[in-house]
Amino acid sequence: MLHIVNKSATDRGSLESCLAMATKGSAVLLIEDAVYAATTGGAAAAKIQAAAADLKIYALGPDLAARGMAARVLDGVNVVDYAGFVDLVAEHKSCQSWL
């Protein structure tokens, strides 16, 4: 299953809720303001790196770039473009947007 998170982890609890309910082996894609969680030095960095042990973590490159964060991506986070986003949706049987 693909989980999509779009809100900053320092603003809302959706990333935390998502990580609590994402089963082992599922994928989490961070888009829009959620991409800040995938960057170094941020409040959610430790949470994301711990989660990367059991989950595949992706972040949307155009959203990182638009926020000046393209060069600060955490190790273990896979950066994808929109084509990669589409592929992730196609590859997983279902998806859930944590609005």
């Binding site: 299953m1 309910m21 089963t23 859930q96 609005l99």
Partner: peptide, 17 residues
């Protein structure tokens, strides 16, 4: 939480509001 996670994983369509 884990029961809920499993329930979600077995769905065909999830719509969140």
């Amino acid at each position: 939480v884990s029961e809920m996670a499993n329930l979600m994983a077995e769905q065909d369509v999830v719509i969140s509001f």
